[in-house]
Design a binder for these strands. Structure first.
Lengths: 333, 333
DNA sequence: TTGAAAGCGCTAACAA
DNA sequence: TTGTTAGCGCTTTCAA
């Protein structure tokens, strides 16, 4: 900028004024400055501007994995909303690890982002609470954490309960659950497992431990675990997959085994990803309230941004989930 | 930092040394500084550090849409590679618009990113060439552009040719093409359309203009266009979808119409997204060389980063594509 | 309408 | 081992 100023025979301040389109600059001066900028190929240094301004205009979205459809679709919804406010959304991954998640918080604390939306998976609630940050942060995804952060959750328990209840109502009695994590307590698999158990209790149907299979959230995992159930001769008449991706893998394994969906085995997923209605048969799944979540996240973060940090008491919001009945489940009798 | 220094009774330089783990600091001093940091809740300001260092350790990946599986999966591959080099990948969207793409370049030029990977869709080649930037940039996605940037492409023409040739070899004679853009010349749809045409010419099979349908790359578009073809009574015995997402939409429309795949209508997609092998029937598609592209992109960008900019002549790389035969196509006789 | 001075928070280079 | 100085590139404030 100093070069430009020198070349145009003005002060850096005038250059700054021209660049930022501030009014009180003479036309001739402006011309000269613009010419110099052009000639020298000058470009603003944002790092410096941010240092000065104390803000970046960027909102970070940190998710476990960049390739999970759910997160891509969430990012897209958030980007729509934040762009309308003149803010950029950038997405990065934490690798679903404690470190990655702490890193993301650190990164935003460190003023690269004006605000951060963090999908927490592996971080310890106690550890979270310890983080001292005055940077705007909204947490998403898991259950109520005693963390002191704004927090938007989907209703994992009730969504899973609805899915399982529907399967039971359509006559299923042996429902395999793919992805349940019997160990954790506040994490997503545990919550969805809770809903699965709740529906069984409410319907007075006993659960079979062999049918609760722990697995990760990839296509391959759903496929492998269903195959394994079949090979082990463990009979089941329905599958509740903890994510749609797992459900897609399961559907493939069922087809390979010659089992018809939904006649022999019904399937319900969770997430209602964009692809769900287009599968053959179309996937019944739990819609976690996509638009409402995006709205809530946006509103909470904007409130913090405008308020200069987490001034209010931390908000906790649970967005209602609802079951979408499609082709992989039978109609209720 | 000054506060910390004052509180610990040392200079800011010593604080800096402690924070960055530099060796020559007395143990007692270090303790005192750490205590002060802790007590004051001090956090480094990265904007300042970047201003100083002239680099950010971040590589930007700008793609048309965050929710397209292809890009999520590409991002994941790139993140693996760059993280191994101690660099963060952050992903943002351009909206497939000229402005968005120019913005992305501007943003990186402006030193928010050490380097940028840009998936170009809508930007004008001439305009691109004009951009004066000494920031490391690698372009991906489209055909050779006279742009002066490093550029990694998939082999759109040959991939489409292989897909179409396979359909012709299995007996298909009326192949609908979904997504072809008859107008553009250097863009992806046009290139894939070129491969489609080439295969017809080589096989001596005439093309039917009604079968080349222009559409966008969403699930819904594939669905709508196939429905429309059927409603208009335009017969076809195969579909070449310009992306896998479009293919998935098409498969759904075929199923709705009671057409069996691959017996009545064969289908081939393009991209080989992770979901393709898990569909029922599994999707035959063109693998554009995922790993090779990620390797090439990483190598080119790292070379620029280490060389301090685009010092070499710009490189252009075309990664070979290959057809993956799965369940939506018939075996060759 | 324009400019000079000061400082955002950090660290390289050098001095003590 | 620790401290001083200077400056990265920008913009706010105040003066001309």
């Amino acid at each position: 900028m100093a070069d430009v100023a020198r070349s145009a025979g003005v002060s850096t301040m005038t250059v700054s004024n021209v660049i930022n389109g501030r009014p009180r600059v003479g036309a001739a001066t402006r011309e000269r400055v613009l010419a110099a900028i052009n000639e020298l190929g000058y470009q603003v240094n944002l790092a410096a501007r941010h240092l000065r301004a104390g803000r970046t205009g960027v909102v970070g979205l940190a998710v476990p994995e960049l390739e999970r459809p759910y997160f891509g679709q969430l990012a897209s919804r958030l980007a729509d909303r934040f762009e309308a406010q003149g803010l950029r959304i950038v997405m990065e991954r934490t690798g679903a690890s404690r470190e990655g998640e702490m890193d993301a918080v650190a990164f935003s604390r460190l003023r690269m982002y004006d605000g951060l939306i963090l999908s927490v998976v592996d971080i310890d609630p106690a550890e979270l609470a310890q983080i001292r940050t005055d940077a705007p942060v909204v947490m998403i995804g898991e259950r109520a954490l005693p963390s002191g952060f704004d927090h938007v959750m989907m209703d994992n328990v009730d969504g899973a309960r609805q899915a399982t209840a529907h399967l039971l109502a359509t006559g299923a009695r042996r429902i395999a659950m793919l992805g349940g994590d019997p160990t954790g307590s506040a994490n997503m698999p545990a919550l969805r497992a809770e809903g699965y158990a709740l529906a069984h209790t409410q319907a007075g149907v006993p659960m079979e431990p062999d049918l609760a299979v722990r697995c990760r959230f990839r296509l391959q995992d759903g496929y492998d675990e269903v195959r394994r159930l079949i090979e082990r001769g463990i009979g089941f008449d329905a599958v509740f997959a903890l994510t749609d991706l797992v459900a897609i893998g399961a559907l493939r394994a069922l087809a390979d085994a010659g089992l018809r969906v939904p006649d022999d085995v019904q399937v319900v997923g969770f997430d209602d990803i964009d692809e769900a209605p287009y599968l053959v048969p179309s996937l019944s799944t739990v819609n976690p309230g996509h638009e409402e979540m995006a709205d809530a996240i946006t509103a909470l973060l904007l409130a913090q941004l405008n308020g200069g940090g987490p001034t209010r008491d931390p908000q906790e919001l649970i967005v209602p989930a609802h079951l979408i009945r499609r082709g992989t489940t039978k109609p209720v009798d």
